[in-house]
Computed example of a mutant assay.
Amino acid sequence: MTMSATADGRPGFELPLLLLAGFRALIDELHAELARQGHPDVRPAHGFAMQAIGLPGSSATEVARRLGVSKQAAGKTIDRLAELGYAERVDDPADGRRKLVRLTPRGLDSLTRSAVIFDALRARWAQALGPARLSDLEDALRTVAPPAGLDTVSWFSGS
């Protein structure tokens, strides 16, 4: 039995593995640095959820839709974020019957630090690959991949 390969001799299965490994390397480094900066309990799913909550806040139903998960799954993640001090449920000023999920100052700090850390990680990749190669890689990925949505969590979980 022989393994198939593309015209340039590289096996096709390697590309998604390399992309996943690159993603994992960035996310693992991000979370290690977040832990050093005072956010040891933040997990990748929490980051996706905080992005889904957004700066103005959202309902649990909106968070679930943005993440591509059930309302119950979103609720569990929101509960955990609230336990950790990253989010809170408040009355929606536009509709008193509804609760709004908002990020706390701790949640906002985590997202702000994440942005700075991602910039530093990108700078390290630019140093390792060269700025032009990294820009070419990003441009190439934008050409072949649709914009990333927040429903990555459901994609990985199979929901």
Rank of each mutant, 00 (worst) to 15 (best):
H46F: 02
H46P: 05
G47W: 08
F48M: 13
F48Q: 06
F48P: 03
A49Q: 01
M50W: 03
M50T: 05
Q51K: 14
Q51G: 08
Q51Y: 10
I53L: 02
G54D: 06
G54A: 08
G54M: 13
P56I: 05
G57E: 04
G57W: 00
S58F: 10
S58I: 04
S59G: 09
A60G: 02
A60V: 07
T61S: 14
T61E: 11
T61H: 11
E62S: 11
E62D: 15
E62C: 10
E62L: 14
V63A: 01
A64E: 08
A64T: 09
A64N: 11
R65L: 15
R66K: 12
R66N: 10
G68H: 04
G68T: 04
V69M: 10
V69F: 03
S70C: 01
K71P: 04
K71S: 00
K71C: 01
K71M: 11
Q72F: 15
A73W: 08
A74M: 14
A74V: 06
A74C: 10
A74L: 15
A74G: 07
G75F: 02
K76M: 10
T77A: 04
I78H: 01
I78Q: 00
D79E: 13
D79V: 06
D79F: 07
D79T: 13
R80V: 04
R80N: 12
R80D: 10
L81C: 01
L81I: 09
A82Y: 08
A82Q: 11
A82C: 15
A82G: 07
L84C: 09
L84E: 09
G85T: 11
G85D: 07
Y86P: 07
Y86T: 06
E88A: 11
E88K: 07
E88D: 13
E88R: 07
E88Q: 10
R89I: 12
V90L: 09
D91I: 11
D92W: 07
D92G: 08
D92P: 07
P93F: 09
P93E: 04
D95H: 03
D95N: 15
G96R: 09
R97H: 02
R98Q: 12
R98A: 02
K99C: 04
L100W: 11
L100Q: 01
V101T: 15
V101Q: 01
R102C: 11
R102P: 04
R102L: 15
R102G: 13
R102S: 12
R102M: 09
L103V: 03
L103R: 00
T104D: 05
T104R: 00
P105S: 06
P105K: 06
R106S: 14
G107C: 05
D109H: 14
S110P: 01
S110C: 15
S110F: 13
L111M: 12
T112N: 13
T112F: 10
T112M: 09
R113V: 08
R113I: 02
S114A: 12
S114K: 12
S114H: 06
S114M: 13
A115L: 10
V116R: 14
I117A: 00
I117E: 01
F118H: 10
F118K: 12
D119F: 10
A120C: 04
A120W: 13
L121V: 00
L121S: 00
A123I: 03
